[in-house]
Amino acid sequence: MAIKDTIKPTRSELIGLKKKIKLSESGHKLLKMKRDGLIIEMFEILEKAKDVRSELERDYAVAQEKLNIAKTIEGTVAVNSTAFSLMDTPKIELESKNVMGVVVPKIESTSVKKSITERGYGIIGTSSRIDEAADAYESLVEKIILAAEIETTMKRLLDDIEKTKRRVNALEFKLIPELYEALAFITLRLEEMEREEIFRLKKIKLKE
């Protein structure tokens, strides 16, 4: 439907339209700034995410190797028996923080990294291979929690960048041009109506 068919060419409509244009343009400017800000934020997070991901892969390889060595030398029977020693599971607290209006998670973990005396197994009957495997897996779990926080933040930021970009584009290429088109239409129509009015007045004056 053409814009001419939906709006009334009145002065109040013109005033309203001008206000809308002003609001849309400032909204567009703000959204553009938000989008750029989010992109900068995103690139910073991206670097962190890349680092954490590579650290995570490295830690996983180390933990797997340590566990494999423990399983090979001590035996899976010994490793699994020792694994029964600990009933405590890591606790995770999920909070949120605001990055330029985007709500991202903040994950706090406790009881992940334990000292050798807190792991529940006796020292005399176990070996450093078990310690090293447990230690490597504790570090890995900590890294997984950190990676989860960073990667979720990245995903949320990406979603919001996409959403903001759509809004900016809608304002820039659809709404604002249409508003200007409507403004031009009303201005022209009002001028036309003014000319008609003058013409009519002249005609009346001639008859008198």
């Binding site: 020693s85 600990l86 807190e118 529940g120 197994y121 006796g122 005399i124």
Partner: peptide, 12 residues
């Protein structure tokens, strides 16, 4: 509670 102490005592 945890068994580490009792495990070491058993070994000793």
């Amino acid at each position: 509670g945890m068994l580490n102490r009792i495990e070491d005592e058993l070994d000793k």
